[in-house]
């Protein structure tokens, strides 16, 4: 059974197409990632799926319910952690959880137990009775994740869950997400523009750019599209001679020469480096530099779009700064 079905989903904002005829299915129990630069349409997609925005056209179904026609049924079955914090900072952590649980129909003893349980899971037990405005960014995020799954939703949406957090906190959050998926079999949809996040967490990833899905598969298979690892070598002496010799090797899938360097596409690059050195010594060519690059989802993104996700970061920061100033 599919937890989410999306068919030709489209959303326009005053002529601007934010989501452009996307289709995908998410299986029950999967961690599914929407990876792409800011402004690619990830958040719009999430907002449509959790009933906050109406699609311009197309169809979407969450937990078996139509997101337009059966909003209330969808809402009962999802948990959402939004990109921007959505906590009441004038309430304590526990009150935020309690109120949320009440809204979702948890009662009495069951509610009390559940609140304790999730507080324990995200390790906020000691801070539960502090006002949220006193929390650090990481603590707020953890509280939101706890709140997102306290009512046992079938599908949990996480929109950029680690945005703006330091590396250590990010690791921590990843662990909670994995734990949730493993322990409760919860279907999780996560949007991110961090390649390593998508790679580490997701069973499958859809790469999205300009409102369109440009590739979708497991992280490993997406990276396999690139054909393997790249070993880059620089040599002192006869480059051409080494190149001719390497071209005869079966395990080297591709060779490319670029200003003094040789790029070799191979599988399991780390195991091939010694062999490469032996070969070059045998024919009397000295290697002066060697490096191994394992393909990342970033490379996959570049492969499909011709630009890097990171390049877009700068623009986004400018936009944010402006927004901050307006406040």
């Amino acid at each position: 059974m599919y937890a989410i079905r999306v068919e030709n989903l489209t959303r326009e904002f005053e002529g601007l197409v934010a989501v452009d005829h996307i289709s995908f299915n998410v299986e029950s129990g999967e961690i599914f990632g929407l990876l792409g630069p800011n402004g690619a349409g990830k958040t719009t997609t999430i907002n449509i799926l959790c009933t906050l925005l109406k699609p311009t056209s197309g169809y979407a179904e969450v937990a078996g319910f139509d997101v337009v026609e059966e909003k209330d049924r969808v809402r009962e079955n999802i948990g959402v952690v939004f990109q921007e914090l959505a906590l009441d900072e004038k309430l304590t952590g526990r009150e935020n959880l309690e109120f949320h649980a009440m809204m979702y129909g948890l009662r009495g003893e069951e509610r009390r137990k559940k609140v304790e349980e999730v507080l324990g899971l995200v390790e906020l037990y000691d801070k539960a009775d502090m006002l949220v405005e006193k929390y650090s960014g990481g603590m707020k995020r953890r509280l939101e994740i706890a709140r997102g799954f306290i009512h046992n939703p079938q599908v949990l949406f996480l929109d950029e869950p680690t945005l703006g957090l330091d590396a250590q906190t990010r690791r921590h959050i990843w662990d909670y997400i994995k734990e949730l998926n493993r322990k409760y079999g919860m279907t999780i949809i996560i949007t991110t523009h961090y390649m390593e996040e998508a790679d580490y967490l997701c069973d499958r990833v859809a790469i999205i750019d300009n409102g369109k899905i440009i590739a979708m598969d497991t992280p490993q298979r997406l990276k396999d599209i690139l054909g393997g690892d790249v070993i880059t070598v620089e040599v002192e002496g006869d480059v051409e001679r080494l190149l001719q010799c390497l071209k005869r090797q079966e395990w080297i899938k591709d060779t490319k020469r670029r200003d003094g360097f040789l790029d070799l596409t191979v599988e399991k690059g780390e195991r091939r480096i010694p062999e490469l050195i032996n070969l070059s010594q045998k024919i009397g060519v000295n290697i002066s530099y060697i490096s191994l690059h394992k393909p990342s989802l970033e490379d996959v993104f570049i492969h499909f779009t011709g630009r890097s996700i990171r390049e877009e970061e700068g623009e986004k920061n400018i936009r944010r700064g402006r927004k901050g100033f307006r406040r």
């Binding site: 809402r75 914090l85 949320h100």
Partner: peptide
């Protein structure tokens, strides 16, 4: 809306 809490209320399964 500004502080984001409105979304939390809006996705709740209440009328």
């Amino acid at each position: 809306k500004e502080f984001g809490f409105l979304k939390e209320i809006m996705v709740a399964p209440v009328s």
